[in-house]
Design a protein around this nucleic acid. Structure first.
Lengths: 186, 186, 186, 186
DNA sequence: CATGAATGAGCATTCATTCAT
DNA sequence: GATGAATGAATGCTCATTCAT
């Protein structure tokens, strides 16, 4: 319901009805609607994080790991529009209190990517870049693709994945030294 | 007020007080609170779009133009936190009706970038990529940098601009060396 | 409604219905239910205080004035059970916030009596006593008579008035000096 | 908890916690919260009544007995603010159901005083008065002194006792000198 | 055109009481 | 007898919108 209606328009009454749990019961387990929303968000974020981590573990190089994590997230979100809506937009209607939570969740994903980029940098797979910034660029790109899919009905994140991965890989691999070398860009 | 409190928590009563316009007057000019918010958003988005377009006009190559548009937006948002908040997050609290508007505004910016990337592709400055997707990647990256700045108090978009531009340029495999011929993009 | 059901059980919804004023209208004029209750209480207390003061003004001696004030209050309360209930018991259900208001209202009546007793003392109509304490004794006595009438359905305060006045007059006139023969009463 | 928070704001959950008795257990022993409150009230009222009766028993004359009962009550309440609050004000928040109980408790105290005044009248210690009314006057005076102490932080009932007793004795026109003179009371 | 008092549907939260274990 | 999770009716307050003046 949070995913469908947004935080604000998901009524506790309705949640109570649809979960077959009395309102009192709901409030026995969750001190507030806000807390309930965060609990849902945590649970789903955890699942998605684990999926990304698993993809990372299976990969053979840091860069492949980052790519795999990306793919895992894109696939999961494509399959579950609701998950995407919940994690990406529907919390905002909560008001400013949501910002902290959003930051927390996004940080977790940013860290996964950043860690791989850091590793890739150490192993020389990519050049010296601001990996923190790069991880945010990746995340932002994914976020926007998902939002565009959700709001404007464009191609699914999964369909966009190949090109998206290419663009993001380029972003951290592009030989910026070129700037001065003037050689071919690839 | 929308920027500070979000759509939902910006009360019409309060808006009426702070604008020294009676509530009746407000409703005479705007059919609804939603409409008022969109009017504010349009006005500010227009300004920002014009700024980006002006930057594009001054640039000497499509790629420089895309970069300049990026820079213009980053600078404007960095200088006006409220503008950033309003355009980027505070509308969500309106509920699902916001999605369309958000898409509309983002599309305008995406178009500016995409047009330049298309041009750059034609002129061979960048290789063949999905420019629509790329424009979204750029936009998403900017969006995320801004949100991170707003929510977590990281570096301003303006400070992140140089590295960000490098990453995004790389993403489209632009041979930035062109730039070095002429010095910085500004 | 406050008088009949007590503060807590007087529902705002019901008040709205019975006053033919919308709930919003109610809250436009009174910031809270508590505030509304106090407003009602003030208005009624004012009326009753004025009545007591008028009685005082007409009297020819301080002691007669005190007696007249007493009588005025007893008569008014006897005629309006609701007034009695409201001022004397129904606020308590508000919780501890009521205490201050109760004290304020009772102090106003205590002052009227105390002023007359002070005057009477100066003019030698009564002996030297603690007039503040005496005023509270009077007030407490009236209060209890009223409560007993309200709760147990005994004689009306008005019917009890003659004997009550005699007792209270005695309380401040009796020749306590007698006690000094033996020292304190303990 | 009833004394501190009032009937309404003393939550059964909280009572359960602070008594280390489960809510189920509480409800096994007491059919309702109301019933529990009355049980507490009865127990404390009993104690106080016994204390008053003991004081009466020790006294040597009816009038002294009444005075002693008064003193016993004032002392007990002064020493235990909570007892005072419980018996005197905190029940009101229960709503109208409290009235009967309040009347019952006050009647017990009224009876103790009235019995002594009746006796004193028979033995000629005081002149002919409405002893029922007088007992209520006494009780009301005590009540008001206590409430004023509780709410406004005035002098303790105990400190007010000497003057209060004098005033109340005067009210029934008891010629206190009688205690030693033993002559005709008028 | 402007005003602002009035409207009333809407909603999160509370808490005495129950009852399966 | 004891437990405490579950119940759900109850309620104060909000706020976008209206409309008589």
């Amino acid at each position: 319901m949070f995913a469908d209606n947004g935080y604000h328009d998901a009524l506790v009454d309705e949640i109570s009805k649809r979960t077959s749990m009395s309102k009192g019961g709901l409030y026995f387990h969750f001190p507030s609607k806000e807390n309930l929303f965060f609990a849902v968000m945590d649970r789903l974020a955890n699942k998605l994080v684990r999926r990304a981590e698993k993809a990372v573990d299976k990969a053979e190089s840091p860069l492949e790991a980052a790519e795999a994590a990306l793919e895992a997230v894109l696939t999961a979100l494509s399959k579950q529009k609701r998950l995407a809506r919940l994690l990406i937009t529907q919390g905002y209607s909560m008001g400013n209190a949501f910002e902290t939570k959003r930051a927390e969740v996004f940080d977790r994903f940013a860290k996964i990517i950043r860690d791989q980029l850091d590793e890739a940098q150490i192993t020389g797979q990519i050049k010296k870049i601001d990996t923190d910034l790069a991880s945010r660029v990746w995340l932002g790109a994914v976020n926007e693709i998902v939002v565009h899919w959700l709001f404007s009905g464009g191609q699914t994140p999964n369909d966009a994945a190949p090109d998206l991965k290419a663009l993001l890989m380029n972003s951290v691999q592009g030989d910026i030294s070129v700037k001065s070398n003037k050689g071919g860009s690839q």
